[in-house]
Write a protein that binds this DNA or RNA. Structure first.
Lengths: 337, 337
DNA sequence: CCTGGCACTCGATGCTCCTGAGTGCCAAGT
DNA sequence: ACTTGGCACTCAGGAGCATCGAGTGCCAGG
């Protein structure tokens, strides 16, 4: 249905439009790309492409611009991920090396990604449900309050205040802490729920109420909450692009953790790069943006996702290359610690 | 030099311009405010005000708009902080009550402030140097690595990985932890440096190298780094205002922690509300914005600062009221935990 | 199936004219 | 000494209009 030249035309349109941000006409196309046919021929091809819905004319007497469908075809069949040069890889590496802790790694990653792609970068913290507990700490705040600190093997540290139903003395706390560490240490957080269920038996009866309070907070922490910890960076890059939906909507959406979770969460869990174009994001306010994302972590164990958000008019090959490269390095850095 | 009526005229100009975003002329002024004089009289007053640099004309045949100097006079002498109604206070309270932990308090505060003022909100985490240590935890990661966790009385939890010069066995860690907690517990972080200096004597000689590594990381953490932990929210509100300097510059500045620190850091440490208008912020990129900020914490002990950033054309009385109210409640909430 | 030619469309640009809000100034009034 | 009405002046913004040119669709011929 679409012969090779028509595909080449589509590719050329996408590339030109991405770099110039102006509708591209038949003459410009034959000039700037090595197409050995006349503009009229191209026009015929473009008419077909428009019929099929890959490109549109903004006005009658203007060139064509790609539609979401056009970008989709481009990404799927007409482009390949742009690999990074050795120098670029080295730059990435040095940018990430020397991070103090998880917060620092995530911060550096988001800055790096924003800088490389000149888009908005989004990085999700390593998912709690995929981490294992390394240590549980209980710090008494006062008679009826504990600070619960969970440390995971991905370096993530979560804290929560626990309101106790009654007074818990120092010895009991020590004991409870010992039990928790003994039973939870090294276990995936997904398993914690079942482990905790069987745990009250191992606690002195008079402390069961307090222990239950602690347990329920642990569960809340793991399940309900911080799963959705996401950092955004490079928002100023949005000013370069003009969105049909309006900049405001996009900024608002990017401030909603829940929206971002959906944005990243609906992607496949493969390590390879995923692209969602325009309306494919059924997230309100981000219908006019594209998302390029990938999972990061060691190959056998994806920890979470990261990616960039930008206008559909985006340099996909480069963005995909950057996302893939950064995901790899961030995964490595985290695996080392 | 400026009689009462001229001041009233300036106040009216500021109020009108803030609410309409259009230069205000002499006729509109007498109509909308109860000034019992003719437009011509107002024109004379305006000419004087312009001579003094309080207002300017964007074009020859347009009304006047306030200058930075005009806003300054307005804030200092012509307006008072708008107190919040009982209902509004209740709303604030319920919005903040029920926060889990410090992260949650800060997040809710920033959202609340952004929502109340319809501006960009900026909240600094409780300053480490003004907090006291409540607990120090050392978690072995592997033979030569420790995770150091500092918990402060403001609920802030800081983590850092410590690379040890040699192997440290379990017993030594327990001992080191005990020493640290015994010596540091309850002390202001500002005092920690001197305490740590005298500490090596209390450690077994063969562990001194490792202990020194831990100590130096503690110091680094407190002094060099996380002092500057700041959260920004409500960036989408920026799209409503048009900045002479360009939206991009403002967004970029707001992403720089260092810039934000300077922005808040140069303010007085009083609990009352501080306003910096336009070029008074000698921070690149924020010369066309105003900052309304206040310290929060209990009255005797300011913990950190929070505030809003917006166009100089800002509703100062309301913003000041919101900042003051939120600072108070956030201070209360933190004092309770 | 490709190509040159040609008529057509229509956004963008630049020009003029006009209007109206707003000013500054002056002379007269209180 | 201040206030006021009157008046000439300025100028941004919008409407109307002609022009230009990039780009198209279509057709007839190779």
């Amino acid at each position: 249905m679409l012969d090779d030249r028509k595909l080449a035309v589509l590719r050329a349109i996408v590339e030109d439009f991405v770099s110039t941000n102006e509708p591209v006409g038949s003459r410009a196309l034959v000039d700037r790309h090595g197409l050995d046919v006349s503009p009229a021929t191209i026009r015929n091809d473009m008419a077909v492409l428009e019929d099929q819905g890959y490109i549109v004319q903004p006005h009658t007497s203007a060139g064509r611009i790609p539609t979401d469908k056009g970008y989709r075809l481009f990404v799927d069949r007409l482009s390949s991920i742009k690999p990074f040069s050795r120098a670029e890889r080295r730059a990435i590496e040095t940018f990430l090396v020397g991070a103090y802790d998880l917060d620092d790694v995530v911060m550096r990653t988001v800055r790096l990604l924003a800088q490389l792609t000149r888009q908005v970068a989004v990085v999700q913290y390593p998912s709690l449900s995929k981490s294992a507990i390394r240590h549980v700490e209980l710090v008494p705040l006062n008679d009826t309050r504990l600070l619960l600190v969970l440390i995971t093997d991905t370096g993530r540290v979560e804290q929560r205040v626990v309101e106790l139903p009654g007074v818990l003395d120092e010895d009991s706390i020590v004991q409870l802490r010992a039990v928790l560490n003994a039973c939870l240490d090294g276990h995936k957080l997904a398993e914690v729920a079942t482990i905790l269920a069987g745990l009250p038996e191992r606690v002195e009866p008079r402390e069961r109420a307090s222990a239950a309070a602690v347990f329920s907070v642990i569960l809340e922490t793991l399940v309900e909450r911080h799963e959705e910890k996401i950092v955004v960076g490079g928002a100023s890059n949005l000013t370069a692009a003009d969105f049909s939906a309006g900049l405001r909507e996009v900024l608002e959406a990017l401030e909603e953790q829940v929206v971002l979770m959906r944005l990243l969460g609906e992607l496949d869990d493969q390590t390879s790069v995923t692209v969602r174009i325009g309306a494919e994001n059924d997230v309100l306010g981000l219908r006019s943006t594209s998302v390029v994302a990938a999972a990061y972590g060691s190959a056998d164990r994806p920890l979470a996702r990261l990616g960039v958000v930008g206008p559909t008019r985006m340099d996909y090959p480069t963005a995909m290359g950057a996302v893939r490269a950064v995901a790899r390095y961030t995964g490595q850095i985290l695996a080392e610690s």
